[in-house]
Design a protein around this nucleic acid. Structure first.
Lengths: 130, 130
DNA sequence: CTGCATCCTTGGGGATACTG
DNA sequence: CAGTATCCCCAAGGATGCAG
């Protein structure tokens, strides 16, 4: 509890680099990352099939996203040398373990996003009469 | 299951605007949002105290983040007219409900982030000899 | 104390073309 | 098929100054 007489004793105790909230978000909050993970939920899937499943993703962004996920140890990449090559992606065990908290977030959205949309409409109605 | 003979039947079924993963992330994945929520976990807190708690946040970004959260119905703003004014922030019930899935993410980080860091080191060791 | 307005920089991400 | 390589643009976010 802070003193009611002064706030000058409050010291920084929350930082970007340390807070657990922020560190996961750095991993999963790029534009396409969550969608790519989502596309791999069912198991092994080929590069081209991910690309076809996700509406609007470019090859560049898909590759870039997959590389990051692979670097973070969340995704495994399997190449079958052939012409043309076959490259299959899947979640690692670490990646699978991330699925659980992510699903909790998704469920929160399913249950509460309409309230967020209502709040926005209401806020804008009040603040947008110029 | 996809046919083993063809992938041409795969249709886009994952989109940015619809996926539940993405929609929450739009709310909480700005640079400071998670930290600001974190700063309000303990209850009502004044603008200046949030600012002091979070290392490196500017007035502009704090205000902007708080406005977004207020617009989304996650944060409540209470003004006590005085000179100088007293402005207190707290999580709404909707905001509190978001805490649960966020804590799941934080816990995942506490338990698994070291593995991510190891994976990165290992990946970079293999891929950075030029 | 709690903001808003302005200017400026940075890098995430799009479009396009080329390759093993 | 599964990528690289470039070029380019825009919006998030930092710095600074003013205001109720």
């Amino acid at each position: 509890m802070n003193s009611p007489f002064s706030t000058k004793t409050v010291q920084p105790d929350i930082s970007l680099s340390i807070c657990g909230y922020t560190k996961v978000l750095e991993i999963i909050s790029n534009k396409w990352t969550a969608l790519v993970i989502y596309a791999m939920e069912d198991g092994i899937i080929r590069y081209g099939d991910i690309r076809r499943r996700i509406e609007g993703i470019s090859k560049k962004m898909l590759t870039q996203t997959l590389r990051q996920l692979e670097r973070d140890g969340l995704v495994k990449r399997d190449i079958t040398p052939a012409v043309p090559p076959i490259v299959e992606y899947s979640l690692t065990q670490l990646g699978e373990s991330l699925l659980e908290p992510m699903r909790a977030l998704k469920q929160w959205t399913n249950e509460n996003y309409s309230q967020v949309e209502q709040a926005r409409e209401s806020y804008d109605r009040v603040n947008n009469e110029e």
